[in-house]
Amino acid sequence: MDRTVMKWLILAIAVPAMCIIVSSFILSYYEVGFVSWEGDALFYILNIVAMLIGCAAEEIGWRGFLLPNLQKKYTPFTSSVIVGILWGVWHLNFTGGLFGFVLYTITIIEMSILMSWLYNKTAGNLVLMTVWHFTFNATSHMFLWDRFTLQLFAIESIVFGILCLFLFVAERNSSFFKSSAGSIQV
């Protein structure tokens, strides 16, 4: 594996894992107790296989099909927001009611922005998108099991939002945010 791919692989693992771990520590600070993800070996194996298959299937749809087609018409940023909205709605996570759904969807939109940036930087590497998605799900199971509350969704939206702000500052003059020839900026 060449160094460039390794750099992006490390990023695809480190960023979502770091965001989940930071969110977990903040929850603990606010005394939202840690609940361990417990089961026997078969439980873990089946969950990991299901997560991997689910993440790969979703990424084929979100970033393998939808994102590239949207980017033909819109900027990568706008396209990633559209994908994020659809992805958030797809999960229909109403933990915490309507406000919880909105906060969860905001986090998914932010994650979609970060993933779309990585997708474009790696010439559409779906393996890296699956690794990111899987890392997010697996670390959520390890660190946030049974802690899905409005507090968590608020914290995650802030944590992922801060990363999106860093991305905006770093890439504000790039084609990620600006329309290219033939695209429509929304």
Rank of each mutant, 00 (worst) to 15 (best):
A138F: 08
E31K: 05
Q151A: 15
G124D: 03
F134I: 05
I53R: 01
G100V: 04
A56K: 05
D40S: 07
G39L: 07
N69K: 12
W62C: 01
R147C: 07
N47Y: 11
G96S: 06
Q185R: 12
L11M: 09
F77I: 07
M111G: 11
T75V: 04
K73E: 05
V49L: 03
L46T: 12
T105I: 08
L126F: 10
R3Q: 11
S79W: 03
N173M: 10
M115C: 08
I53L: 06
F34Q: 00
W62S: 00
G100M: 00
I53N: 01
V32H: 08
L144C: 00
R63D: 02
A154Y: 09
R63N: 08
I13G: 04
T95C: 08
V49I: 10
I184P: 15
A154L: 12
H133G: 04
K178L: 15
Y30V: 08
L118K: 05
I109V: 07
E31P: 02
I85Y: 06
S23D: 06
E59A: 04
L128Y: 05
A50I: 05
Y44M: 14
V169S: 09
V22I: 14
F94N: 02
I53G: 02
L70F: 14
Q185V: 12
G124Y: 02
N173V: 10
C55R: 02
F168E: 12
I158R: 04
I26H: 09
H141K: 12
T105L: 08
T75L: 00
I113N: 13
W8M: 11
P68F: 07
N120T: 14
G88L: 01
I26G: 10
A123S: 14
E58F: 03
V131S: 07
S174N: 15
A50C: 01
E31V: 04
L27W: 06
F25S: 04
L9W: 00
V49Y: 00
P16V: 14
I158P: 05
I109H: 01
R3H: 14
L92N: 09
T139H: 03
W8K: 09
I20K: 00
M115I: 10
S140C: 03
I108Q: 04
V102T: 13
N47A: 13
L46Q: 11
F177C: 11
L42A: 06
A41H: 09
G124N: 02
V22M: 10
L103A: 11
Y30W: 15
M51V: 13
N125G: 02
V35L: 11
I158A: 15
M6V: 06
C164N: 10
W8A: 15
N173T: 09
T95N: 13
F101A: 13
T122M: 05
S36D: 13
L150C: 06
E171P: 07
Y29K: 06
Q71E: 13
N173D: 13
F25V: 05
T135A: 13
G33Y: 15
